[in-house]
């Protein structure tokens, strides 16, 4: 009994530290491990590949982090990606920009829809977005007639494979969006409102904050980001694949957010943590693959990481 009371503060400090910095530590440790034990890890090409592969998850996870910050969840992101993927070939004829804009508008509309269900009707986020998860991919497949469409528009494909200043465009887009998300959370009234709504909804209401507008806003942003991720994934694949694009993306995005230290209970958004969460999961995957551990092991490890991260977060929030 006495030892427990003595050790409790220490343990709390350790858990709190882990929650705050665990993800960075894990990324560093994993990088070091790979530098030492993995052949050909320290190459520009390899880093490019890792970053490009992490980019879509990272973009979706940014939106997810905002939603989770309001104590919500957005399960529809994968389906929104596939809707975006399905729309691209239809409007590519009018130019890549039009195609991208149409896809993003679709994301915004689906976000408006989820936001309306959550904010106006008061439906639990998990259910409101579940319906879109179920129906959204079907809709995408209907739009695409269940077909995989090869894309040949060079300008569009550059989004997925091209470079700008020696950096892959996908990575650049993800980086810019991460910076914007960081600014949004830290520097705008919307961002501060968001955190307040997630932190203490009754207090936010009594403080006269536009709670409903904030809620709708985060789902719109999440939808738009998912659409952008869908467009980029399509460009990288050089094909529109409504059936596969964004499959299980909601899982990866939630994992990245949770591992990055954003608590599921809301009131806090960690943008950099989320980015590193996405990177960490990508690194874990790459490490296992490079050491000839199969996909199956990667999935099981991912499962263990999710449980571990949530367990750590839980200890903190119940205190």
């Amino acid at each position: 009994m006495t030892t427990a009371t003595l050790r409790a503060p220490d343990r709390a400090r350790v858990t709190s530290w882990l929650q705050n910095y665990g993800v960075y530590l894990a990324v560093v440790v994993l990088l070091l491990f790979n530098v030492i034990f993995t052949e050909n890890f320290l190459s520009v090409a390899n880093f490019r590949t890792q970053l490009v592969q992490a980019a879509p998850v990272c973009i979706v996870a940014l939106g997810m982090a905002l939603v989770i910050g309001t104590e919500g969840i957005d399960l529809s992101v994968g389906s929104v990606m596939s809707i975006a993927a399905a729309l691209v070939p239809l409007y590519l004829g009018a130019g890549p920009l039009t195609a991208v804009i149409v896809a993003v508008i679709a994301g915004v509309v689906s976000g408006l829809f989820s936001g309306f269900l959550v904010a106006q009707l008061g439906i639990q986020p998990i259910i409101a977005t579940l319906a879109l998860l179920v129906g959204g991919r079907g809709l995408a497949l209907v739009i695409a007639h269940g077909q995989l469409v090869q894309l040949h528009n060079a300008d569009f494909l550059a989004l997925g494979t091209g470079d700008l200043l020696g950096i892959p465009i996908m990575v650049l887009v993800a980086a810019v969006l991460a910076v914007l998300a960081g600014l949004l959370v830290r520097r705008t009234t919307f961002g501060r409102h968001l955190v307040a709504v997630g932190g203490n909804r009754p207090a936010a209401t009594l403080a006269g904050l536009p709670v409903k507008r904030v809620l709708i806003g985060v789902y719109v942003i999440s939808g738009a980001l998912a659409a952008i991720a869908g467009v980029l994934a399509t460009a990288r694949l050089s094909a529109s694949d409504a059936g596969e694009t964004g499959l299980l993306m909601e899982l990866s995005a939630i994992t990245a957010v949770v591992v990055g230290g954003t608590p599921l209970t809301g009131g806090r958004v960690r943008v950099l943590g989320t980015v590193f969460g996405a990177l960490l999961m990508q690194l874990v995957h790459a490490t296992l693959i490079k050491h000839n551990l199969p996909d199956s092991a990667a999935q099981m490890v991912q499962a263990a990481i999710i449980v571990g991260a949530v367990y750590v977060a839980r200890e903190r929030s119940t205190r």
Partner: peptide
């Protein structure tokens, strides 16, 4: 339960309602 936003700093709690 209806006043402070526990996760936020003193500064942010003070400016919350006056943000606009």
């Amino acid at each position: 339960s209806e006043g402070i936003i526990p996760n936020l700093s003193v500064r942010e709690n003070i400016v919350l309602a006056a943000l606009p």
